[in-house]
Amino acid sequence: MKHEKYMGYLFEVAWILPSVAIPISVIVAVLITAFAVGIRVPDIAGRIEPKAIAATEPFDEPGLRELAPGKYEAAMVAQVFMFTPNEIEVPVGSEVTFVLTSRDVIHGFKIVGTPVNMMVVPGQISKMRFTFTRPGEYLIVCHEYCGGGHHAMSGKVIVR
């Protein structure tokens, strides 16, 4: 009995060390990819009045805008069950900042094959940046349930 307990304590310590080490390594690894490599999640990007979308920059003229050589801003509006515009085209190597808002309910915005993934929320502006280094057609899906036609809501990024 005594011996059993003593061995038990040894095992406990032998397990507790990695139980602390593993979580700490996960934190360190994520901090490196976030702040050294620069893969970040959406931050606060401002509020917007849903009824005044048509009068608020950049959504007054949704679409692609060149900010500087090779740098673009894609302003898109989500509503049941479509994105406006639902297709944008950029040259290979472009850095595109996607800026979105919703006219009605929550929508999702995921560009398949990239880390661009955000919720599009009425009253809020969502913003994320990505550099397209490979040509191709990228599927955009609305990946938050937004009503009966949700599965028809998609778009496209064409990279040439």
């Binding site: 999640v41 931050d43 809020q124 969502s126 913003k127």
Partner: peptide, 13 residues
């Protein structure tokens, strides 16, 4: 809510 707008990146972290 990592992908939500309107919440600061710091608190997500």
């Amino acid at each position: 809510q990592y992908t939500d707008p309107g919440i600061s990146e710091i608190w997500k972290l």
